[in-house]
Deep mutational scan, measured.
Amino acid sequence: HAATELTPEQAAALKPYDRIVITGRFNAIGDAVSAVSRRADEEGAASFYVVDTSEFGNSGNWRVVADVYKA
Rank of each mutant, 00 (worst) to 15 (best):
F48L: 01
E42P: 01
S54H: 14
R38E: 06
Y49G: 02
T53W: 15
D18F: 11
P8W: 15
D31R: 03
F56Y: 13
R19D: 00
A11F: 02
G57M: 08
F48D: 00
T53R: 08
K15R: 11
R38D: 04
V64W: 03
R19Q: 06
S47H: 15
D52M: 13
D41T: 15
H1K: 09
T4C: 14
A12Y: 07
S34K: 14
D41G: 15
A13D: 09
I20D: 00
L14Y: 07
E9D: 11
D41M: 15
R38G: 05
N61W: 15
S37G: 15
T53K: 09
I22F: 03
R63E: 07
T23S: 08
V68W: 04
A66C: 06
F48P: 02
I20S: 00
I29V: 11
D52L: 13
G44T: 03
V64D: 02
G24K: 01
P16A: 07
F48A: 00
G44N: 05
N61E: 15
R39I: 11
R25W: 13
L6M: 06
T7N: 07
R63K: 10
Y69P: 01
D52S: 15
N27C: 10
R39H: 06
N61S: 10
A45F: 14
Y49A: 05
E43V: 15
V33T: 07
E9R: 09
Y69A: 02
N27M: 12
A2I: 11
V33F: 10
V64Y: 03
G57W: 07
H1F: 09
L14M: 13
S59F: 09
S59Q: 10
E42G: 06
V36T: 04
A40Q: 02
V36D: 01
R38K: 13
I20H: 01
A3M: 06
T7I: 04
Y49F: 14
A46V: 12
A28K: 12
G44S: 05
G30D: 12
V64F: 03
A28Y: 09
K15I: 14
A35T: 04
D31Q: 07
V21K: 02
V64P: 00
A3R: 03
A45P: 02
S34Y: 11
E55A: 08
G60F: 04
Y17D: 03
A35P: 02
I20V: 06
A71H: 10
G60T: 05
R19A: 03
S47T: 06
H1S: 10
E43D: 11
E5G: 06
F26V: 01
L6P: 03
N27R: 11
R38Q: 11
V51T: 06
S34G: 09
A13K: 14
L6W: 02
Y49E: 01
E55L: 10
I29G: 04
N27D: 11
E9W: 09
T53F: 15
L14P: 01
A40I: 06
Y17H: 04
A40C: 10
I29L: 12
S59I: 09
S59V: 09
A3P: 14
V36H: 01
E5P: 08
H1A: 09
A32W: 10
T23M: 11
D67E: 08
L6F: 04
P16R: 05
S47P: 02
G24M: 05
Q10H: 05
R39W: 10
D52N: 11
R39T: 05
I22L: 08
S37H: 08
V65I: 12
V33E: 04
T53Y: 15
D67Q: 06
Y17P: 06
L6R: 02
Y49M: 05
R39Y: 11
T53V: 15
Y69L: 01
K15W: 08
V21L: 04
A11Q: 03
S54G: 08
S37M: 12
R38Y: 07
T23Q: 09
A11H: 04
Y49R: 06
